[in-house]
């Protein structure tokens, strides 16, 4: 696989990979802190569990947002030139994937503002 193809795959699947990272971090950290009784600690002025979820969500949202912008830019570039059907296809699917991923990542961050950490 060439470097350009690798980049295309990352752009296409990047949003969902970011969600997978967010999910692993927030579930892993919550389970560990609650399981070990370390959840009373605070970070950034809030509970460590909530802070972790907030940071993980913001970081993955930002990464996915950048991927979305890059995908959109690639679609615009390709519309002005004779891009191959495969390139055009991957870029457009990338826009859809990253757009959907933004919503999913946001959705997974919501519980931090509603629920207690370890109840």
């Amino acid at each position: 696989m060439t470097g350009q193809r690798t980049l295309q795959v990352v752009l296409t699947l990047g949003g969902l990979i970011a969600w997978a990272v967010q999910f692993t971090v927030i579930y892993g950290v919550t389970s560990t802190l609650c399981g070990r009784g370390w959840a009373d600690a605070t970070l950034l002025g809030m509970g460590v569990v909530q802070a972790t979820i907030l940071v993980a969500t913001l970081v993955t949202l930002a990464a996915t947002g950048l991927l979305l912008l890059a995908s959109l830019r690639m679609v615009r570039q390709q519309s002005g030139q004779a891009a191959s059907a495969t390139d055009d296809f991957l870029s457009r699917v990338g826009v859809l994937m990253n757009g959907l991923s933004l919503v999913i990542i946001l959705w997974h961050g919501v519980p931090a503002f509603i629920l207690p950490a370890c109840a």
Binding site: W19, A20, T30, S31, V49, I104, H108, P111, A112, L115
Partner: peptide
């Protein structure tokens, strides 16, 4: 992708923290 973030919804009755359950509920 998402189907790998659902497994604990079969374990909702096992007493895990509600915060953890909510991630799986969201997925």
């Amino acid at each position: 992708f998402l189907s790998f973030g659902l497994w604990v919804h079969h374990m909702f009755a096992t007493g895990l923290p509600k915060m953890s359950l909510s991630f799986f509920s969201a997925a």
